[in-house]
């Protein structure tokens, strides 16, 4: 475990907790894309299939349970909670899941490290995670208003993957056998998708004005 990975995991943990706390305290999910949250629940489910078969460390297992629990709770809140669901903007959050799920599945079947169920599922989760933020970014551009908690949430999500890239670079140089190009590519694509959001986030932060994404 190196500092980049720990910082990445903490940033990721913080992002889902910020979101869960926001929804739980103000009982609103305005500006949040349910599609993205459902895709993340799918990412964690297909990524952590080995949670009960391969024990890596207590930290690893606890974090997996937290990510699974928080992502499913967020989906539950937006779908089922009698107050929160009223603030869900379903006419704006229209991104089709299968536009992302199908291509990632097909890609994972053809491009993977090993053609086994677990490995294909794991690769699928990597590809899906790279694009899962798209419905959220589309929703932000449509609704144009970004409350700062949502902005912080997306920012932290992007930052976590950028820290993971530093972790992969660090491990590449310190652990010679550790090179997984699929992980690299998916991680870089994911971070690039956030790049334009980062640009506008920093612009608004620097000019101390409300975050506006171009239409």
């Amino acid at each position: 475990m190196n500092i980049f990975r720990l910082a990445g995991d903490m940033t990721h943990l913080f992002s889902v907790l910020v979101l869960l706390l926001k929804i739980h305290t103000i009982k609103s999910c305005a500006g949040i894309s349910l599609k993205t949250q459902e895709l993340y629940a799918l990412v964690f489910t297909t990524r952590y299939l080995d949670i009960f078969t391969d024990f890596i460390s207590l930290y690893n297992t606890v974090m997996k349970l937290i990510f699974l629990g928080s992502s499913f709770s967020i989906v539950w809140y937006i779908r089922r909670h009698k107050i929160v669901r009223r603030s869900y903007d379903k006419d704006q959050d229209t991104f089709r899941h299968y536009f992302l799920v199908i291509p990632c599945l097909v890609l994972a079947v053809f491009i993977n490290h090993k053609f086994t169920f677990k490995e294909v599922m794991w690769t699928f989760s990597l590809y899906l995670e790279a694009v899962a933020i798209l419905p959220q970014l589309v929703l932000l551009q449509r609704t144009r208003n970004i409350d700062n908690l949502t902005g912080q949430y997306v920012f932290l999500l992007g930052a976590y993957r950028a820290l993971y890239i530093l972790n992969w670079i660090y491990r590449h140089f310190t652990e010679p056998h550790y090179v997984h190009w699929i992980t690299w590519i998916a991680g870089v694509v994911q971070t690039l998708l956030y790049a334009d959001f980062f640009y506008y986030y920093f612009q608004s932060w620097k000019n101390n004005e409300k975050l506006q994404l171009p239409a």
């Binding site: 995991d9 990524r47 391969d54 460390s57 997996k64 990510f67 794991w122 550790y178």
Partner: peptide, 10 residues
């Protein structure tokens, strides 16, 4: 061993 290596990350 290689497999475990990949999977030690979240």
């Amino acid at each position: 061993e290689e497999d475990l290596e990949t999977k030690d990350e979240l």
